[in-house]
Structures are given as structure tokens and as C-alpha cells.
């Protein structure tokens, strides 16, 4: 056959070979249809394990038990018993090594998330004990008068 026919043919074949070689090197071997169907399961399988390796930041109340037993017991019998310690003190990941201490948030805003009164029928918010933050001892941190761990008790 004539050269001007063959030359572009070789060029196209070389391009396809290059494409396949690059594809072989770049696309991981676990890439493919893993799961229900091509539409929903076409992915890199090891990414599932990547996500599972992500570290937890919130460790839960049980974690505090060993070292802050007094606080956990005190809190456990109060009206605040359903509130996780870490909701008010932040995630405990790394504590007590790093950070050594968890932050203490004495802001009124923390308590007002639940206790600023909103007259909302159809929501449990309407039934929570609420105050008007502009009239209930404004400017003063709530914890000066209420025990955040056991609010049904007088502050000692």
C-alpha cells in the first residue's frame, strides 16, 4: 500500500497504544464496577477503606467516666443528663495528652441555644424551660448562678 495511507494509520495505532499505556499506569487496579451497577458502583474500591480510617473526634460521655467520674455522676442524675459533655467542652480527640485541658465555654450563648425562650408550638422548643436573655440577669455568665452539670441544684 502507499506510504501516505500507512503513515497516518501507524500514527493512530501509536496514539491508541500510548493511551492504553497511560491508562494502565494511572488508573488503579481496584478501579471498576464494585457494587450494584455501573451507574452507581463505578469507583476505586480502596476509597471505602480510606473513609473508614478517618479518626473520630467525639468520644462520648463513657470516655470521660474514668478521669472525671465526679462530673459524670453529678451530671448523670440531673436534667442535663442527656447532653453530651463534648457539646459544651468540644471534641475530646487527643485529650488529655494534647490538648491537656478541654476548653470551658462560659458564654451565655452556649446555654441560650436551648434556653432562649421561643414561643413555638409544634416543636419541643416551646416546652423547654426558657428565659428572655435580655431580661434574665443580662451580662452575667449563667454558670455563676446555675450549675451547668446539674442545673436543678443550687450552685454551692
Amino acid at each position: 500500500m502507499k506510504n501516505h495511507v500507512l503513515r497516518p494509520l501507524w500514527l493512530v495505532l501509536a496514539a491508541i497504544a500510548l493511551l492504553l499505556a497511560v491508562r494502565y499506569l494511572v488508573v488503579p487496579s481496584d478501579f471498576g464496577v464494585n457494587g450494584r451497577s455501573f451507574t452507581y458502583g463505578f469507583h476505586r474500591l480502596s476509597n471505602v477503606a480510606d473513609w473508614q480510617k478517618f479518626p473520630d473526634k467525639y468520644l462520648g460521655k463513657e470516655y470521660c467516666q474514668d478521669c472525671h467520674e465526679e462530673k459524670v455522676t453529678e451530671n448523670g442524675s440531673s436534667k442535663h443528663r442527656n447532653i453530651q459533655c463534648e457539646n459544651c467542652h468540644g471534641p475530646a480527640y487527643g485529650h488529655p495528652d494534647n490538648p491537656e485541658k478541654l476548653p470551658i465555654d462560659r458564654s451565655r450563648e452556649l446555654c441560650l441555644r436551648c434556653h432562649s425562650q421561643l414561643p413555638y408550638p409544634g416543636s419541643q422548643r416551646g416546652q423547654l424551660k426558657g428565659i428572655d436573655p435580655e431580661r434574665h440577669n443580662p451580662g452575667q455568665p449563667c454558670a455563676e448562678c446555675h450549675n451547668p452539670h446539674h442545673p436543678d441544684q443550687e450552685v454551692g
Binding site: R113, S123, Q124, R125
Partner: peptide, 13 residues
């Protein structure tokens, strides 16, 4: 939705 009080602690967490 009846139990939610809008404290936003879920969003923070």
C-alpha cells in the same frame, strides 16, 4: 421534627 429544639449542636458536632 417535633423533638428538634433548634440548638444546632448537631451542626457544630
Amino acid at each position: 421534627t417535633e423533638k428538634c429544639v433548634g440548638c444546632g449542636l448537631c451542626v457544630k458536632a
